[in-house]
Amino acid sequence: MTRDEFLQLGAEYAAGCLQGKELEDFEAYLQTATAQERNDLAELVNTVSLLPLALERKTPPESVREELLKQTRLSPRARDSVEERTKEMAGKIPRPRPSGWRAWMPFGLTFAGLAMVIGFAVYVAGLLNTIESQNRRLVELQDQLQRKEELLGVLSAKQVDMVLMSGLPSNPTSYGKIIWDREKRIAILQVSNLPPVPSDKDYQLWVIKSADGGQPISAGVFAVGSTESFYFKIEQLAVTNPREIAAFAITLEPKGGVPAPTGAMYVAGSPKL
């Protein structure tokens, strides 16, 4: 469309005279009109809108103004606005506080929810403790099983020696025995009724040889829990012949053991030759 063509149609459009297909086509064209064309059209529209200025001015009656202002005091928009504002304010104005049990219901629900959370946490913590305890117990039982299997292994040897040990005055109810596979030089210590060891202590097994002036030789350290019986594997016994052994003794020593016995002796026994 040339500029002249656009101005011609634009003038009719500005005057509100375009109709039917002409109007449709022109409005469709406007969607992609150039800035120049849009400016031309805006000028034409506003030229037409200035036509009232050419008329001889007339003054409306004052009553129109009064009636207008009277109506706008509560016009539909004013009422709508009031309703809208009421809705808006409804979200901002604090609602009347409920009384009686309703007043406490939110706190009750909150408390109940909190209690459930805490209860669940305690329950989970308990479960975890139980699992941990069971794990410890399992390890303990596995350890015991292993020791008993070792004991059975020693007992199944072709020839074993056994040394019985009795409780000493410091703990007369305790007792123990050493079952010794001479061939494999492996021994199992079994003790019962020994008091549980403090955390900074260990029991220490001593071999007291007949020779060398009866010098005690450490055969290992172990700890005893609450179990009545305890099995302890002595990996390497320093002697191979029971005749060389004057006695076995168990003392309570500092954690990890000491080179020579320093603590109280709990059980002791000598081989029956």
């Binding site: 500005a14 509100g16 005279c17 409005e27 849009r38 506003n46």
Partner: peptide, 21 residues
């Protein structure tokens, strides 16, 4: 009206230079 520049169409004449004219 036959056709013409209604309120909406008039306002849709987006000409940034309009206010300076």
């Amino acid at each position: 009206r036959d056709a013409g520049v209604g309120d909406e169409m008039l306002l849709s004449l987006r000409d940034e230079t309009a206010m300076a004219n």
